[in-house]
């Protein structure tokens, strides 16, 4: 692309992102906010593509726009339809000025920090160690080998979020849209195999190209949400000691086991033996994808599911 056209495109994208962020946080109508947030996620994915980061773009589109969007919309549908509160006519200027000053300070500090980053970044260091990583895709190498500890914490955060959501109360009903449509079950039936196919494709691709556990898990979780919206009864139950609790924590448990067994055989924490790295990463990738899919799906249930769905209204 001609440099001028590509600069114009980037400027347009950045401007649209700022405007949508403002809309998402300041629109008087909550529905408008949620839609702005979803569009923000999609444009953010485009921005990551422009920055040559297709892995983050995939994750942003699937989790940021897709799953979070569905979560926000379903939460919005359950809010009691109280008349929308009109924003106060009198603006509180001192508060606004304080917030703007704080935002400007944080922006300046972030800018200063970004300015002082070592110029070529860590790309060369990662590339130098890639032969020992056990995979060909540098992003997967960083996520599941060099910085596996960070990934453990990320999946841990997801698990904590689901624990928090389940502790808020039982799953509210109905799970299906209030106005049923014959098109939705047909769509669910038609697309579910595509979701499974895309999940395996992304998982397999993760070893040598953009893709991996987070993207695959997000796609599978989103597919599960679609099937539930189409009227299928979820098999995930909130039974005490039920098998689903193990599946939800599978990712964290496997990563911790991998980390602890490396210390047991005399390596450092999370330092896989070079010969076993490929196998360990494959196991971690698959278990993490299953766990992430289940966690995103469980979060969408908006509360602890019942021990048995039989007899649950609308199921």
């Amino acid at each position: 692309m001609a440099p001028l056209a590509s600069h114009a495109y980037d400027l347009l994208l950045a401007g649209a992102l700022l405007w949508l962020a403002w809309q998402a946080t300041h629109a008087a109508d909550l529905f408008r906010s949620v839609i702005s947030f979803i569009v923000f996620g999609l444009l953010m994915a485009l921005a990551w593509i422009r920055l040559d980061a297709p892995d983050i773009a995939l994750a942003e589109a699937a989790i940021g726009a897709g799953v979070t969007g569905a979560l926000l919309l379903s939460a919005l549908g359950r809010l009691t339809s109280a008349p929308a509160e009109k924003p106060a006519a009198t603006r509180r200027w001192p508060g606004t000025i304080a917030v703007l000053a704080l935002a400007a300070t944080v922006l300046a500090l972030l800018g200063a920090a970004a300015w002082q980053l070592p110029a070529p970044g860590l790309g060369d260091a990662v590339a130098g160690h890639m032969p020992r990583a056990g995979v060909d895709n540098p992003v997967t190498g960083v996520l599941l080998n060099f910085r596996a500890f960070d990934t453990l914490l990320e999946i841990g955060v997801l698990l904590l979020a689901v624990v928090a959501i389940w502790s808020l109360g039982p799953t509210p009903e109905p799970l299906v849209p209030a106005i049923p449509s014959p098109a939705l079950p047909a769509l669910g039936r038609m697309l579910w195999p595509m979701f499974v196919l895309a999940t395996f494709y992304l998982l397999w691709r993760g070893t040598h190209a953009p893709g991996g556990a987070f993207q695959a898990g997000a796609v599978l979780g989103a597919g599960g949400i679609l099937v539930i919206l189409a009227g299928a009864r979820p098999w995930l139950t909130g039974e005490d000691n039920g098998p689903w609790r193990w599946l939800l924590s599978l990712g964290v448990v496997t990563m911790l086991l991998a980390a602890l067994s490396t210390t047991l055989i005399g390596q450092r924490f999370f330092e896989y033996p070079e010969s076993a790295a490929a196998g360990v990463i494959l196991v971690l990738e698959i278990t993490a994808a299953i766990s992430i899919a289940m966690l995103l799906f469980a979060a969408y249930l908006n509360g602890q599911p019942p021990a048995r769905w039989r007899g649950y209204p609308h199921s």
């Binding site: 098109a183 769509l187 038609m190």
Partner: peptide, 20 residues
Amino acid sequence: VLMLIASATGAGLIARTALA
């Protein structure tokens, strides 16, 4: 093809909800 399916379903859902 996926966009065709999704947009047809989406448009139907929105129209149906609006009518209801």
